[in-house]
Amino acid sequence: MKEKRYNWPVTTLLIIGTILILFPIYITVVNAFKTPAETAQSILSLPGTFTFANFLQAIEMTNFFNAFGNSLYVTVFTVIFTVLSNSLVAYAIARNMHKKTYRVLFYYFVSAMFVPFPIIMLPIVNQMSSIGLMNLNGLVLLYIVYGLAFNVFLYTGFIKAIPKELEEAAIVDGCSRWGVFWRIIFPLLSPINATVGILTALWAWNDFLLPLVILSDKSDHTLPLVQYVFQGQFATNYNLAFASYLMALLPMIILYLFLQRWIISGVTQGAIKS
């Protein structure tokens, strides 16, 4: 048997990358539990006494639970309607790619991924303002529309791998095209639905720029906006800022740790043709 040989250059790069990722997290965690005096002495050392006072003060100053509710509302409804609507659009395109109109439509959606948001930012703000959707509902609508390009790309590859014979058999048994999708296709899309749902949730929860230009009422601010305002107002008190960052990050970290395998499985299954 051949001896195993380690690829030291790759291993070294992985170690460096891990350190670069974990070091800022370490700084954030330890300083969130410190007093300002301890942080001034050293940002690397462990706190002398772990205290939750910073978290309680950050919750009060940022109106954290209101912002948390807004982010949760936007994320949940964005994920639900994105999965339902984007899968329908992708199914129509995937099963009609032999038609020129649908091929053009598919490439049109794919090309939208290469359009930078700042280019269309002002027209979007103008349109949303004119129809009275500069609020959380308008934000949900924009996330659904903006996610369409990338999600159609993912869904189309996955749906192509599903045998058409399943649909033909269902139609022969008297199932309508609408019933075929909801009873046959949609249940088979569970892996890619999970992938799209997780990626959409991470995006909607962590996004900063779109809420910044859409949400005009401070009571509608999501967690990323609250962190921005908090940092601007309390730029010298890093302990409160770090505590607030941890509370904002924790839900998505937990979600990703438990569901990360669905992202890989969904993408890889969509790349395999039967």
Rank of each mutant, 00 (worst) to 15 (best):
F208V: 07
L225T: 03
K218P: 04
L215G: 02
D207S: 12
A235M: 09
L225V: 08
L202N: 01
N237R: 15
A170E: 06
Q231Y: 14
E165I: 06
P224E: 15
N206V: 05
N237C: 02
L209W: 12
L210T: 00
V229A: 14
A201V: 10
N193V: 00
T195S: 07
I185M: 12
A235H: 09
S190Q: 08
S176F: 04
A204Q: 14
A201P: 00
S219F: 08
R177L: 12
Y228H: 12
C175A: 13
H221D: 01
V213S: 09
V226R: 15
K218G: 03
P224R: 15
W178P: 00
T222V: 12
I192L: 11
E165Y: 09
V172A: 03
K218N: 09
E167V: 04
Q231K: 14
Y228M: 07
G174M: 07
S190T: 11
L202M: 14
S216G: 09
W205E: 02
P163A: 10
E165M: 10
Q233Y: 07
L199E: 00
E165R: 14
G232V: 08
S176T: 08
I198K: 13
P187W: 11
L202D: 00
I185E: 07
L223M: 10
K164I: 02
D220V: 08
L202E: 00
A235V: 12
T222F: 07
I171M: 14
W182I: 00
R183D: 12
A161I: 03
I184P: 06
G179H: 05
G179W: 06
T200E: 00
